[in-house]
């Protein structure tokens, strides 16, 4: 058997990086499209790298980017040509194995998270995200959902915002005033 064969049920999902997914002699649904996308993107980046400084000098800022994007483009084209020759995996479909509805829903959640993070602030956005996604995945009662979601959010918030003073977007919550209030309380109690 081909030692590089990764097509068993344990590996084809690509959960381990050292044993990436995919089949060696077959193509998965959408794989060809992905390869074509990579080729086009690489060619575009190669053009963009040429625009940095052209063939000005060996030490020009565009020299290494041009070399790497050229390698990208060649590799992507080779992959595309190879993939195109392989037969499709007969048992898989795009909607079932590559992009099932649940994954699409979560990608949507992440995009929404990104869009709301700045205007709404970290705490409300994260709270909504956690509650909705735990509810959706665990399918347990609201009590459980809220306890798990808000409990873990409080821990994350304390670690990052209070201990590591990461200035997460405050949005609609006056976090800084809130923290200062407790700080005054503590220092007031101490003195």
């Amino acid at each position: 058997m081909d030692p590089d064969f990764r097509g068993d049920s344990d590996h084809h999902d690509g959960t381990s990086d050292a044993t990436p997914g995919g089949y060696t002699e077959q193509r998965r649904p959408g794989e060809l499209g992905f390869a074509i996308f990579l080729s086009v993107a690489s060619l575009f980046l190669l053009y963009s790298a040429y625009g940095i400084s052209g063939f000005e000098a060996l030490s020009a800022p565009g020299a290494v980017p041009m070399a790497t994007t050229l390698v990208m483009a060649v590799a992507a084209l080779v992959v595309t040509a190879r993939t195109a020759r392989f037969p499709l995996v007969p048992t898989e479909t795009l909607g079932k194995d590559i992009l099932p509805p649940l994954v699409l829903v979560f990608i949507g959640f992440l995009i929404l998270f990104g869009l709301l993070l700045k205007p709404l602030g970290f705490v409300p956005t994260a709270a909504i995200f956690l509650v909705v996604s735990v509810k959706l995945l665990a399918r347990k009662g609201w009590g459980y959902t809220f306890a798990v979601a808000l409990g873990s959010l409080v821990i994350i918030w304390i670690v990052f915002r209070v201990i590591f003073t990461v200035l997460l977007p405050a949005g609609i919550l006056p976090e800084a005033e809130f923290i200062q209030f407790f700080r005054n309380l503590v220092s007031g109690g101490a003195s």
């Binding site: 200035l167 609609i172 919550l173 006056p174 800084a176 005033e177 809130f178 923290i179 200062q180 209030f181």
Partner: peptide
């Protein structure tokens, strides 16, 4: 409005908003 909520919560906590006498009323970045 964002300011109104902020003012309300801040008021609730017994602090006052951005007046120079009380500056700094919160942490400075």
């Amino acid at each position: 409005s964002r300011k109104l909520i902020g003012a309300l919560v801040a008021f609730g906590l017994g602090a006052t908003v951005a007046s120079a006498q009380d500056y700094p009323a919160k942490e400075i970045q």
